[in-house]
């Protein structure tokens, strides 16, 4: 079959991108290899590990289960867009650092994106709610405890 190419236009972290992609190109590969936004990681390519989670119009989704062409006209947010241009952490990034919420850091991008969206909607989450929200992101290093603590701390700091 000839390559089935499509022109797409989307924003990533607020910046506009135009590209021509093969229909089968996964959004995760498009972000990482075409846009060189390699902060989004790929762990399983079947939608279980959550490492590739990005925000699609503000909602966390698995970028390995979406085609790049499907992002046409949408706004994507990735880990690269979290900290301020000056490098200031978001409250969640800061809390992850403070609580040792990452070890190898490979699952971290997906966790940051998932829980960033979660904190937007849950100002005062319980630990159970945090664990539930986190359960779609596998981490093999931390045992989750410090991540949970980081999210709780971030929520508390965001409440001020």
């Amino acid at each position: 079959m000839d390559n089935d190419l499509h022109d797409i236009a989307l924003t990533v972290n607020g910046a506009a991108y135009n590209g021509r992609v093969e229909s089968r190109l996964l959004l995760s590969d498009f972000l990482r290899h075409d846009l060189k936004l390699a902060g989004t990681h790929v762990g399983c390519e079947h939608g279980v590990c959550g490492a590739c989670t990005v925000l699609l119009d503000g909602e966390p989704v698995r970028s390995c289960l979406m085609l790049a062409v499907q992002a046409n006209g949408h706004a994507i947010s990735t880990i690269e867009g979290l900290a301020s241009p000056a490098g200031d952490y978001t409250p969640l990034q800061q809390a992850m650092h403070d609580h040792h919420g990452l070890q190898c850091g490979y699952c971290t991008p997906g966790i940051l994106m998932t829980m960033t969206a979660f904190l937007d909607e849950h100002a005062s989450p319980s630990e159970d709610e945090v664990r539930e929200a986190l359960s779609g992101n596998l981490c093999r290093c931390t045992g989750y405890q410090n991540i949970v603590d980081a999210v709780m701390t971030a929520a508390s700091r965001m409440r001020g």
């Binding site: 990482r32 290899h33 060189k36 936004l37 390699a38 902060g39 989004t40 990681h41 790929v42 990735t78 880990i79 690269e80 979290l82 900290a83 490098g87 952490y89 990034q93 992850m96 650092h97 403070d98 040792h100 990452l102 850091g105 490979y106 971290t108 991008p109 940051l112």
Partner: peptide, 23 residues
């Protein structure tokens, strides 16, 4: 002491180099 990690910044901002990031 429970010193916070030097390596975190790169990992928390998506700037760490993993093998698949080599282009």
């Amino acid at each position: 002491q429970p010193v916070k990690r030097n390596e975190d910044r790169k990992l928390l901002t998506g700037q760490a180099l993993f093998v698949d990031d080599v282009e």
